[in-house]
Amino acid sequence: MLLVVTYSRAARTTLRNVCRTHEGSVVRRFGRAALVESTEFGALLALRLREKHGADVQLERTEPLNEFERVPASVREAATAYESRDSPSTPYAKFAAGSDHPAPETLRDREL
């Protein structure tokens, strides 16, 4: 999908109008941002906004995340284990330190 984020009142107003007019092509709207369907029409809407508001409009292309395809098992397992931890107040760094789970710094250095 296309993610449209606005950074000015004028751009936000245009986005709101576009979303109202083209509900069918807008997957979801969040205040000053919206997810637009990934079609050439969606691209037309997004580019129109950029054309009008320049750098006050950020466009990104998003895709759903299949964690079984893109995320290493160690990370998935760490997430599962951390969410079922005994003490809710333990930060992840501390949780990982006494276990086989990867340290946060290690994870930060690895591109997905």
């Binding site: 950074y7 006050d56 950020q58």
Partner: peptide, 20 residues
Amino acid sequence: VVRERRATRDRRLELEDRVA
């Protein structure tokens, strides 16, 4: 560079809303 500037734009939007 643009990503860093978006912080400034965010701030501007906040101020614009406050003015309004």
